[in-house]
């Protein structure tokens, strides 16, 4: 690791002030991506601003027809939360499938979505549920939040504080993990919500995306058979030694059907 300064602000205001003062600062939440990146000398920030001192950001609560989860809520806490399990069991299951237990004990919702790794699980849940990201500045609908490979709509000095997930009628997330890293080669989140059916895909492309043809088909009938014949174009999908684009395209359709079946189970 290169040298950097370390700050642990006690409030959001303090954190924002630091962001304003320091040329290149990295926000540290769970650190499960940032620390490996620093270790490999792939980043050299002037400072690391550790948000863990800001206690209020880890809350998990139900607010009417939404589940509001603080940015610093750890994956293990989301997975184990009775509130989450009751309101959106698919979200608890997704959190329970991220990485491994040690990663889940540290990694956070806010860190995951702000990083927007193309193979991360949470972005599929946000997009699939039509969640809203709250920052210290504003509210951003998930549809506008994820903008590209490791890119989001966040401004450089903007900090995610919470995510509000509308509670769906039913939902499921099915992941096809990379056998080595266990990140998603393809992950599909399917939800039947008050605002309609949503299908979001992670892992397959440089950024999480929705699948309108599948949404339309499922809107007509929310059943796995509705997706029979669903064909995904391989153009623009990721290719690597584990899965070429054509295989990923095939897996998107398979995982989507399986997610619907699981949502109905």
């Amino acid at each position: 690791m290169y040298s950097f300064a370390y700050y642990r602000p006690a409030s959001l205001g303090e954190a924002r002030a630091l962001l304003g003062q320091i040329e290149e600062a990295s926000l540290l939440a769970g650190g499960q991506t940032l620390i490996p990146t620093l270790k490999q000398r792939l980043a050299s920030p002037d400072a690391v601003i550790d948000l863990k001192g800001i206690g209020a950001l880890a809350a998990i609560e139900r607010k009417g027809e939404a589940l509001v989860i603080g940015a610093l809520a750890r994956h293990a806490a989301v997975a184990a939360s009775p509130v989450v399990r009751e309101a959106i069991p698919a979200l608890a299951a997704l959190a329970d499938g991220i990485g491994d237990p040690q990663v889940r004990n540290r990694g956070t919702l806010g860190g995951s979505i702000a990083n927007n790794d193309p193979a991360a699980d949470y972005p599929a849940a946000l997009l699939g549920l039509g969640a809203t990201v709250t920052t210290c500045e504003r509210s951003i609908p998930a549809d506008n939040f994820f903008t590209g490979l490791f890119a989001t709509d966040l401004e450089p000095d903007e900090i995610v504080t919470a995510v509000s997930f509308p509670i769906p009628r039913r939902a499921a997330y099915v992941k096809f993990p990379n056998p080595a890293s266990r990140f998603a080669i393809v992950g599909v989140f399917v939800a039947e919500t008050a605002a309609g059916v949503r299908v979001a895909v992670t892992g397959a492309a440089p950024c999480v995306f929705r699948l309108p043809p599948a949404e339309a088909a499922l809107a007509r009938a929310f059943a796995p058979e509705s997706l029979d014949g669903l064909s995904i174009a391989a153009d623009g999908l990721n290719s690597d030694i584990h899965a070429v684009a054509a295989y990923r395209a095939h897996l998107v359709a398979v995982m989507a059907r399986r997610a619907v079946r699981q949502a109905l189970a």
């Binding site: 540290l28 620390i35 270790k39 490999q40 040690q102 540290r106």
Partner: peptide, 23 residues
């Protein structure tokens, strides 16, 4: 060096964590 093997696992406030992935 990619936070996967878990040989460095310790308990931090009672929960397992990879000590190579924590400052």
């Amino acid at each position: 060096d990619t936070s996967q093997c878990g040989a460095c696992t310790v308990l931090v406030d009672g929960a397992s964590a990879k000590s190579c992935t924590l400052l």
